[in-house]
Amino acid sequence: MDEDLGSRLEQQIPALRRYAFALARNSAEADDLVQDCLERALSRWGLRRTDGDLRAWLFAILRNQFVNAYHRNKRRGTQVAEDADAQSPAGQDRALELGDALAALDLLPEEQKSLLLLVGVEDFSYAEAAEVLGIPEGTVMSRLSRARKRLREILESGRVPLLRRVK
């Protein structure tokens, strides 16, 4: 492996760890994801298209691993989040919002969650985010709009921890 690839991969590790942590919400699980992702990248380097963006390629590998291996076992975000609409809006307490933002994010479907993270946190362009998620570029804005609306509604309801209550 050439030095150059090593340093280029390594530069991406902090961002990969941040994305993995936001997805898995668990440091050990997140680092397992990052390790799997990097190992896969090292073994597939030769097969990789030469023109693609390294960062988008790595994030796509990590995201696919999360979706395939981890997400299957997680609770269903969609259904729970839909209950949010039924909750009576509580006050927009800043402290509550702060503490619960990641928990609220966790209630979103994986694709919405990833989109918010890639665009809003990792500063991916809309085209790059579409590439990582394997969705048409033209649908990114409307999906982003829906994801932000969903997250806002969950946070504005102010009852993130109670959302899992069975109605």
């Binding site: 590790i13 390790q35 609306k149």
Partner: peptide
Amino acid sequence: EGRQRDLLRELLQPKFDEPIPAHLRIDTL
């Protein structure tokens, strides 16, 4: 929505700033 975007960035920044654990370094792998 803009505030919530900033909030996520703030909350996740410490993870980005952490030193890379030895077992994840490319040399190790």
